[in-house]
């Protein structure tokens, strides 16, 4: 859901590419209705690409026709329970590096970038 917001950076600014990732599996309450709503909001291609690059899950290239609970639980595991603990999120457009430490992404820009 995060994208590069450096001023003037408008192409290739989403999704951010993740490097040096250290992932953590956390437990998050499952809510089927919420997941169903989220699937429509997620940029599916970007989501699949990121999950694959991180080696978390190999998801279908398009959202399946019939979404059952099991599929929603799978998405829940990837989207809600896989946390980027340490690493870098890099903009493919302008190469800005957003560091993640202790699971907290630092999305601050430099004063010259706003």
């Amino acid at each position: 859901m995060l994208m590069c917001h450096v001023k003037g950076c408008a192409t290739d600014n989403f999704p951010l590419r993740i490097e040096d990732a250290e992932l953590e599996q956390v437990e998050v309450e499952f809510n089927e209705d919420f997941m169903r709503r989220m699937i429509n909001k997620i940029e599916w291609g970007a989501f699949v690409q990121t999950a694959f690059a991180l080696g978390v899950d190999q998801l279908p290239a398009t959202v399946p026709e019939n979404i059952d609970t099991e599929f929603l639980q799978r998405i829940h595991r990837v989207a809600m329970e896989t946390k980027l603990k340490e690493g870098k999120m890099i903009c493919n457009g302008c190469k800005h590096v957003y560091p993640v430490t202790d699971g907290i992404p630092n999305m601050l820009l430099q004063e010259t970038e706003v």
Partner: peptide
């Protein structure tokens, strides 16, 4: 409440990184 408090992000609301979406 760890299973509901999903996380935090450091950012300036005046220059924020949220992708355009009614989220």
């Amino acid at each position: 409440l760890e299973d509901r408090i999903l996380g935090t992000v450091v950012c300036d609301i005046a220059h924020h990184p949220w992708r355009d979406c009614e989220l």
